[in-house]
Design a protein around this nucleic acid. Structure first.
Lengths: 106, 106
DNA sequence: GATTCCACTACGATTTCCGAAGCGCAAGGG
DNA sequence: CCCTTGCGCTTCGGAAATCGTAGTGGAATC
């Protein structure tokens, strides 16, 4: 039991978008969703794909995202995006193309 | 002058999307872009719209986003999304609708 | 020339994040 | 049976990011 894991900021304000922007604004949250867009991954594999992010933060973020119904555990102990999260993932796809144009301007 | 403001993580990996996810994963970054989607805002007004976020973090984040060519100062000293950032903003619009469905599941 | 307002900056307190080490369990080897 | 290995985390001390109150400096107003 147990996470201190603060509630999603703004989640009670009637402005879900604010809660979402807060959740996605936690470090590695977007990256984790991105890496899980094509299927579930076990803990260590996910960590490797996220530039070896620290296991403590990964664990915390998995908790956050799972509590937010964006991730769920698979039968074999891996982590999978929920149906909802997959829809969100679809919305994020265009960021890839955009980021390439953006990179040229840096 | 100048900011320590760490480089965008992954910006040298040839994977712009990773750099982008890192930048947007800094606290308040997404929210700031969201609030500026309909036009420039002066510092204090922006702070108020972002739940009174601390001015020090706001200042840092404005620096980050400006260095990333997502924001630019206006002639009268406010902050405005660049053309690029506005395109990004368009991509984020659907998140609003998605978040409303998501909120029901919490 | 004093006051107000605004855009920040300074800086100590607090929270988050990092990363090396360890724990508990399950599978495999000898 | 041990013993080792691998995996999914958890612990915990230190580093870094964020917060929040209190300025600072400049421009406009009184």
């Amino acid at each position: 039991m147990s996470k201190p894991s603060r509630a999603v900021r703004g989640s009670r304000t009637g402005r879900p978008i604010m809660a979402l922007l807060d959740l996605l604004g936690r470090r590695w949250a977007l990256r984790i969703l991105w890496e899980l867009r094509e299927g579930p991954l076990p803990f260590t594999e996910l960590q490797h794909r996220c530039d070896q992010m620290s296991p403590s933060t990964l664990s915390q973020r998995l908790t956050d995202l799972t509590e937010a119904n964006l991730l769920e555990p698979t039968a074999d102990g891996a982590h999978r995006a929920t149906r909802q999260a997959n829809q969100l993932g679809e919305l994020l796809m265009p960021l890839d193309a955009w980021s390439k144009k953006w990179a040229k301007s840096l």
